[in-house]
């Protein structure tokens, strides 16, 4: 068995009085596609935000690719990570946000080339070539010179996926990537994510409410409740015969909202 690429040990995250992650233990293997489901406020987005270093943790240790994320190995054990360490660790991950968060003042092409050029130090030609390949992958080659405000939500999200991929991350974090989209635009984004899921190397963490999609692409589904993983397993198991009452209730509510 490989060393896990992500390992959370006793991770606690509090927002004031509220405990969002409550001694979370969670591991992900390299190349694994993991879907995180659960009610709102269960901490599922927070896990991704902790991994992307957008939220600090209060307790516990997170390991990414064999190294502590929020800590550094100091003379007397683990010490809080420096910005240099965080930057090194961030390089391993890419994130896709619910509301796309494209840079509105840049064309699609520049959204894709800016970070490769100025963070990775690629030449303009290399960055452009990489961007054009990715735009083809997400089916938006003809939109290179458009501004984000000229695109539909689905197109914007596909650009956002390409932008994250342009940094060649080992791990892709998808935070409810289709929740802000009109229903008819969800499919085009899911198709792009599914094509990525076929890549063996790429590790994917996906927070979503698209249960059918989760069932089809994930190796494992984790049900989050109150800041912990209440139940996890292969999708067929979780969706067909969940063991926990809370999981059953949640799935019933999501799959049969009218009842």
């Amino acid at each position: 068995m490989n060393e896990p690429i992500i390992r959370c040990e006793g991770v606690v995250k509090r927002f004031g009085e509220l405990t969002v992650l409550d001694h979370l233990d969670f591991t992900v293997d390299p190349g694994e596609k993991v879907t995180i489901i659960g009610p709102s406020g269960s901490g599922k987005s927070t896990v991704l935000r902790v991994l992307m270093t957008l939220e600090r943790i209060n307790e516990g240790v997170v390991y990414v690719d064999g190294e502590p994320l929020w800590h550094e190995q100091g003379a007397k054990g683990l010490e809080p990570a420096s910005e240099a360490h965080l930057r090194k660790m961030r390089q391993k991950m890419g994130m896709v946000f619910q509301h796309f968060n494209l840079f509105p003042h840049m064309t699609v092409l520049r959204n894709l080339t800016e970070a490769p050029r100025y963070v990775l130090g690629l030449s303009p030609r290399e960055a452009r070539q990489r961007a054009e390949e990715l735009l083809e992958l997400v089916g938006l080659s003809d939109k290179a010179e458009a501004f984000p405000s000229q695109l539909s939500g689905g197109q914007q999200q596909r650009v956002a996926i390409a932008r994250a991929l342009a940094m060649r991350p080992k791990i892709m974090l998808f935070d409810e990537p289709t929740s802000a989209l009109d229903p008819e635009l969800v499919g085009e984004v899911l198709r792009v994510i599914r094509s990525l899921a076929e890549e063996h190397e790429l590790t994917m963490l996906l927070v979503t409410h698209e249960m059918d999609f989760a069932r089809r692409i994930s190796d494992r589904v984790c049900f989050f409740d109150q800041g912990r993983i209440l139940e996890q397993g292969p999708p067929e198991e979780i969706f067909s015969s969940p063991k926990e009452q809370r999981t059953r209730e949640f799935l019933h509510a999501v799959l049969h909202p009218e009842e």
């Binding site: 957008l54 961030r90 890419g94 946000f97 800016e114 100025y118 963070v119």
Partner: peptide, 23 residues
């Protein structure tokens, strides 16, 4: 959210201010 996107792409703080926020 723009600062978060910039962080996720690993821009430095100074790059984020001058390249993302200021324009």
């Amino acid at each position: 959210t723009q600062y978060e996107a910039a962080k996720a792409l690993n821009f430095t703080r100074t790059q984020t201010l001058w390249r993302i926020a200021l324009p």
